[in-house]
Amino acid sequence: MWKDRVIGGEIISEYLMEARKLTKEFEVSVGMFKSRAKIRAVDEVSFGIKEGEQIALVGESGCGKSTLGRLLLGLIKPSSGQILYKGRNIWRLSRKEFEEFRRNAQIIPQNPYDALNPTKKLSAALIPQILRHKIAKGRSEARKMALDLLEMVGLSPPEDFIDRYPSRLSGGQMQRVVIARAISVKPQFIVADEAVSMLDASLRVEILDMMHKIGEELKTTFLLITHDLGVARYFAKNGKIAIMYLGDIVEIGETEEIIRNPLHPYTKALLAAIPVPDPKIARERKSIPLKSIDVPSLLKPISGCKFHTRCPYAIEDCEKIKPELRLVGNRWVACHLT
């Protein structure tokens, strides 16, 4: 029944990864007597990512970006809704098919200092999965591949690195190894969760460039999660940006279009916060008088549009009716006012 639905103006089969009404609830204990409460970290999110696309997911901390990323990777089970990989629900795959998906969807976690086992040499971070997925025929071939991977992420000569412990690497070098680790199984889809936010500004560009290059060379689809619109714009310059707010995706579109002409009030507010080199755009862009700076708690569900408590343009409908993502021009926006 879903088969023929058209989302984003395209037929589903064109998507590599797709979310349909994807929801994740967490049980948390609150208050004096540890009563149980449910929070919706991801709230009926639907969107798709095309093969080879480079997309950035942007939102404030705690809005559910990592949860959405981990749902797409099949690392946690959704409370409801579906994740489709090449049009097939990943939680309905056979064991063998799931293993194939598992290999094809990788994560680059946020903290490079934590993404490598401190008790193991780099070889142990690269070789076991190559053997497990039979990408190499034997140990020596796998080791050769691991050396190539290190070379590819700019650690040369690789022979100097492969038998080191992570403690003997710098933060930037660690992040390179982590990237090598993620691409070691030749995945089609990579979620990079705040992959550069722990790094120095000078290193960020290098790593972003490298991921970009890998994406193009290996035809890997990237979803970069970040709270920094500037990073998103830099990474997804030829791709797309998705804006997330309290568990909802509120706007998706081509990066340059979103930057030049944000439609959702929340996107406007986020954009107002980043510096722009172009004075013409800067003059055109007005700052948004938000009603409140604080992000509301997920513990109290908000009716209607979740942004209405802070939105300066909110009308009565915004408090009552939840806006769906609608196609506006070339863009998807969830706002009653567009």
């Binding site: 690392l75 598992r102 990788q106 994560i107 999965q129 497990r132 993620a182």
Partner: peptide, 9 residues
Amino acid sequence: FVEMAKCLG
């Protein structure tokens, strides 16, 4: 690193 290992299958 544990999450990554899981993700790597």
